[in-house]
Simulated assay, not measured.
Amino acid sequence: MSFRQAVGTAAGAALLLLLAPSAVAVSAPHDSARTAPSDEVTVDATGTVAADGTITLSGTYRCTGAAGPVFVSSTVSQGDPLASHPIGGSSAVCDGAEHRWSNSEKSAPRTLVPGPAHVEATVFDISATGLPLPTVHAVREQDVTVAQG
């Protein structure tokens, strides 16, 4: 890996941490004019929560035209729609093919429990030139069921 790639990757990871949803976040409207028609993300109808509080969400994504490192982020809320919890983040590939994504995060026990929930998944890239800025490729909000896993 070249120095420039390493710096770009580190800057992208740092920005990802800064952009990660806080424990209380409000979803911003998605600007669909910025995404390609073929860019999409889906959320599986069921997520799981383990006895230790680890929640796992998954789905599929497809994107093209990324300018830098690509990620799939996800958040989940139960009850209060303004109190969402970040559920991990995973790296992605924008090659036009459909891929699976899966994010897991350990939350405080009983913070997230089996039952209905609302999930938001976002596919975005971080530009590799100049100031690292995110470009959203796809966003999906969906009601799901969280099952004991």
Rank of each mutant, 00 (worst) to 15 (best):
V136R: 03
P81G: 05
A45Y: 09
V139A: 02
S91I: 11
V113I: 10
G89I: 08
E98I: 14
A13V: 13
G88I: 00
V136I: 15
T75L: 06
R34D: 14
V93I: 15
A28F: 11
S22E: 10
T48F: 04
S32I: 14
V7W: 06
T42C: 05
I55W: 00
W101Y: 05
G96F: 10
D31Y: 12
T46A: 14
I87S: 00
G96S: 10
D80W: 01
G79F: 05
A83G: 13
T9F: 09
D143H: 14
E120L: 09
V43N: 00
R4E: 12
V7D: 06
S22Y: 08
V7Q: 12
D80T: 09
D143V: 14
G59K: 03
L15N: 02
P81C: 04
P37A: 13
R100K: 13
A33N: 13
T56V: 07
G47N: 01
L57P: 00
A23P: 07
A10R: 06
T35K: 09
E141W: 06
A50M: 03
E98F: 06
H30N: 14
G88F: 00
A147D: 06
S27N: 15
Y61V: 05
A121T: 03
T54R: 04
G115K: 04
Q78E: 11
T46W: 04
A50L: 03
A25V: 11
R140Y: 10
S102C: 02
A128Y: 08
Q148I: 09
L112C: 01
P37R: 13
C63S: 15
T145Q: 13
T46C: 13
S73T: 15
V119E: 00
A67N: 15
A92F: 01
G12L: 01
S58W: 03
T145I: 11
T75V: 12
T48Q: 04
T46E: 11
G88Y: 00
P86D: 04
S38K: 12
R34W: 13
H137I: 06
P81S: 10
P29I: 12
S27E: 15
P69C: 11
T54H: 03
A25M: 11
L112M: 04
